[in-house]
Simulated scan of single mutants.
Amino acid sequence: MSYFRDIRLINYRNFKDYSLEFTKNCNVLFGTNGSGKTNILEALSLFTKGRGIRKDQIKNFIKKNENNFINFSNFKQFDDSIELKVNSEKKNNKIIKKIFLNNDSSKKTIDHLYSLFSFLVFLPETERLFLSSPSFRRNFIDGFIFSKDNAYNILINKYKKNIIERSKILNLNDYETSWLDKLEENISNLGLEIYKARKLQIFSIQSHLSLLNEQQKLSFNKLIIKINDRFFNDGINIELYIKELKKYREIDKITGGAHIGPHKSDYIFQLDENILVSQLSTGQQKTIILLLYLAQSNYLVNECNLKPILLMDEICSHLDDINRKLLLKITEHFDLQIFMTGTDKNLFSFLSTNTNFCNITE
């Protein structure tokens, strides 16, 4: 099992020099609003790719009137103890994040670090998954894919880069057609890969929900997730994709971006084909969201042999008896390290007595 044993934050957000120790299972961070609970979850998430759970600018991580931040953690990987460090530094007049594993920051070492663990993240805005924008739902599904495949963000970034480059070329007065043809071929190949990954992710969620329903008698209606995309279907191929991109060149020149592709997709969540999840009560929507995390955890643990670390910020809103039982099942069924935050320790009274409670206000 892989888990964070502790963390030390120096000049990070609201913390001057702050340390916490964790257990390998459930850790609850509680305290008043503004005490830094979410900042600690964010600090943990910085030990992997990206700019953390809030996707903020690196410069904003640095405590006011300080020059840089440094965060440390001892990470347990089976019998090995690994020293992790992440800090900010200035490079070419830009503030960047740099990660070290046992004081080594070579690409080979950091790539190895990325393979050691992954995160599943719940944020307060996740509560509005079914009511938010299509881009929010795309990012949610992509986050689940990334929890299995940490190279998926490279695919997404390549796709976005090619879309932007194509837009620039379309707006030139004169350009090489072969150059544009090659870009559209790249976009088509990358787009089809993204469609494939998302379709597989949706299939995995639904199949593992069905499996859990059978094994543990969850007694929930069948959840159906459909891709809502006027271009996507099982019959599209590279030739058709390229043909469509060429067809919309003039429109895309005016509107920017691309008229078709996975960046236009949305997802429809239904119960038993006829009930839109977006029409359910807030508590019922929270139930479906917790079921999604339960299914993804089951998929990662039992099919992918991965042990994700769950970061669940302000998770206790809209927790009725059903949702408390689901959250308890997530914490106890998979033997995962989990971090939760909330304003009051009593909100977590339903958790195991082995839970590690950390008062961030003190």
Rank of each mutant, 00 (worst) to 15 (best):
R8I: 14
R13C: 06
K16D: 12
Y18V: 12
Y18K: 15
L29H: 02
G36K: 02
I40P: 02
A43T: 06
T48S: 13
K49C: 05
G50V: 04
I53N: 00
I53W: 01
I53G: 01
K55N: 13
K59D: 10
K63T: 14
N71E: 08
Q77L: 14
E83F: 14
E83G: 11
N87T: 14
E89G: 07
K91G: 05
I96K: 12
I99W: 04
L101C: 12
L101Q: 12
D104Y: 08
S106K: 08
T109G: 04
D111W: 05
D111K: 14
L113H: 01
Y114N: 08
L116A: 08
V121P: 00
L123D: 08
P124Y: 05
E125S: 14
E125N: 15
T126S: 13
E127Q: 15
L129A: 03
R138C: 00
I141P: 00
I141W: 01
F144M: 15
I145Y: 00
F146E: 02
K148E: 14
Y152N: 01
I156H: 00
N157R: 14
K158Q: 13
N162E: 11
I163N: 00
I164T: 14
I164R: 12
E165D: 10
R166G: 00
L170Q: 02
S178I: 09
L180W: 04
I187T: 05
S188I: 00
N189Y: 09
G191Y: 00
R198S: 01
Q201I: 10
F203Q: 13
F203S: 13
S204G: 07
S207F: 10
S210L: 14
S210Y: 11
L211C: 08
L212K: 06
L212R: 07
L212T: 07
N213R: 09
Q216I: 11
F220K: 12
F220R: 10
N221H: 12
K222R: 13
K222W: 09
L223N: 04
I224W: 07
I227E: 03
R230C: 10
R230F: 15
F231S: 04
F231K: 03
I238P: 08
L245T: 02
K246C: 06
D252A: 04
K253D: 06
G256H: 03
G256F: 02
H259S: 13
I260D: 01
S265I: 01
Y267L: 04
F269S: 01
Q270T: 15
S278R: 15
S281R: 05
T287V: 07
L290S: 03
Q296F: 07
Q296M: 11
S297W: 05
S297M: 06
S297D: 05
S297I: 05
N298C: 09
N298G: 05
Y299G: 01
Y299T: 06
L300Y: 03
L306D: 11
P308H: 04
L310A: 04
M312F: 15
D313G: 03
S317F: 09
R324I: 12
L326R: 02
L336T: 04
G342D: 01
N346H: 12
F348M: 03
S349T: 14
S349G: 07
F350Q: 07
F350G: 03
F350Y: 12
S352K: 11
N354P: 07
F357T: 08
C358W: 11
C358T: 14
E362A: 11
